[in-house]
């Protein structure tokens, strides 16, 4: 497996992905979120089409309550993952609303809970 991880800041992420993403070469897999040491880590994962196990991951770190840029205009599928992370991890993406998975009176950001 060949995984290239690239650290970007929240301001650069739009430009970096706009310049990099060609849907005929790279398949957009998903947006992944982690919450560690009071810090959010958001990963945009891409896999190359027609090549064995080649991954490209852009990741950005942000404080827990930061406003994160939405990339739904470049990749329409991103809207789904942003909504999901908004509910489960309370990652505050632009234009995303709560209530896709968990009812509004449900648990607040369950994936931030530690054992």
């Amino acid at each position: 497996m060949k995984t290239t991880k690239e650290l970007v800041t929240l301001h650069e992420i739009r430009g970096a992905i706009e310049g990099f993403y060609d849907p005929q070469i790279w398949h957009f897999v998903c947006i992944n979120g982690l919450f560690e040491n009071d810090e959010l880590e958001i990963q945009w994962c891409f896999a190359k089409i027609g090549v064995k196990d080649e991954w490209k991951v852009f990741y950005a770190k942000a404080p827990g309550d930061a406003l994160l840029p939405s990339l739904a205009d470049i990749m329409p599928t991103a809207r789904m993952y942003e909504g999901e992370l908004r509910d489960l991890l309370d990652a505050n993406f632009e234009n995303s609303v709560k209530g896709m998975f968990i009812e509004l009176d449900g648990l607040e950001a369950p994936l931030r809970i530690k054992r």
């Binding site: 849907p23 398949h27 190359k48 089409i49 027609g50 090549v51 064995k52």
Partner: peptide, 23 residues
């Protein structure tokens, strides 16, 4: 391609994308 479709739905639209090839 634009909505990064996958599986039989993408293949029915002529996109040759199959994880069995790529993994």
């Amino acid at each position: 391609y634009r909505s990064s479709l996958l599986g039989p739905i993408a293949r029915a639209s002529g996109v040759n994308f199959d994880v069995r090839n790529d993994s």
